[in-house]
Every structure is written in structure tokens, then in C-alpha cells.
Amino acid sequence: MAQLNASLRPAPAPPPEPIPVTLNVNGVERTLHLAPWTTLLDALRLHLDLTGTKKGCDHGQCGACTVLVDGRRINACLTLAAMQDGRKVTTIEGLTTGDSLHPLQEAFIEHDAFQCGYCTPGQICSAAGLIAEGKATTDDEIRELMSGNLCRCGAYPNIVAAIRQAMAIAGPKAEGAP
């Protein structure tokens, strides 16, 4: 099979010029100069050194990069940082208040709702978004609405148990993000 990728533009465009992007990350205003091709995920991981948000596929197929933007859960890998200019971003690092853990973080530890831990920040941010959305009341609804977060270790039953516990504390309509 011939290499079909060969129809390249004769003179490839130089890398894009950085543009200023301001994000409120976990309550702190951060202005970065980023080439527009920088995703929100890479801005967090590579430019802000907030590596709690994970890259599991970089294509919106696993949920490891889930963060809250203006309180709603999204996949940070499928949006450009520039598109989120001026918005409030909450990552796993922002769920902790001082030394005290978010009820979801407590519940995840108590229920052993993770193994390798790589999907965990995304699971927890997603669960925070889920609780804020208030659409899940049963275990089956939690399962369905958490299905955008793969866990290859297979901790799903414990994840559901942890969310159920945190939900009981937070109440179904409570804000997920601080």
C-alpha cells in the first residue's frame, strides 16, 4: 500500500504564533502565551504543571482529562485553551481545600474506587460534574452518566459506591466544584 500521506503542502506553514490566554485555574488567574493549537489539557499539564489532569487518549474517548469549566464537566483534550479564555477551570488539584479532601476524594479512598489511579482525577471531576447536574438518582443512572470515564482497572462497582456515598453527603443538587 502506497503512503497516501504524501500530498503534503509544498512549504509547510511555520508553527502558529503564541497568543495570550487567560484562565482562572482553581481560583487563580493565569495568563499564558500559547500557540493556538494548545489544548486545554496540554495547557494544564505542560504549561501550568498541573499534571493531575490525565491524558489517556487525547481524543475524547476515555474521560481521563475531565475537568470542570464554569462548573461543567468537559474533556480538556478536545478544546483549545484559547477557546476557554476567561473561563473558570477546576481540576483535581482544585477540589482539595487546604488539607481537607473533597467528599468525593474521601469516598474514593474509602471505597477503593481506583487501582492504578490514572483515570481517577477524571473520574472524580466527572463525578463532581454529575452531582452538580443532578440527573442521576439511581445506581444505573450513575453508571450510565459515568460511562464517559473508562477505568481499565475495572473499579466501576467501587466508583459507583463512592459516588453514591458522596451524593448522599452533597445532596443531589449540590455544587460539585468548590
Partner: peptide, 21 residues
């Protein structure tokens, strides 16, 4: 016993191979 590395994992403080610089 709860995982001794649990706190690191739920706070994003566990660092994986691509997270050192």
C-alpha cells in the same frame, strides 16, 4: 487497609512517567 497511596492518587499528586520535567 485503605491504599497508602490513595491520597496521592485522588488529589492528582501521584506522578506518572510523562509527568516529570
Amino acid at each position: 487497609v485503605n491504599r497508602v497511596d490513595g491520597r496521592k492518587k485522588v488529589t492528582g499528586d501521584a506522578h506518572y512517567a510523562a509527568e516529570f520535567t
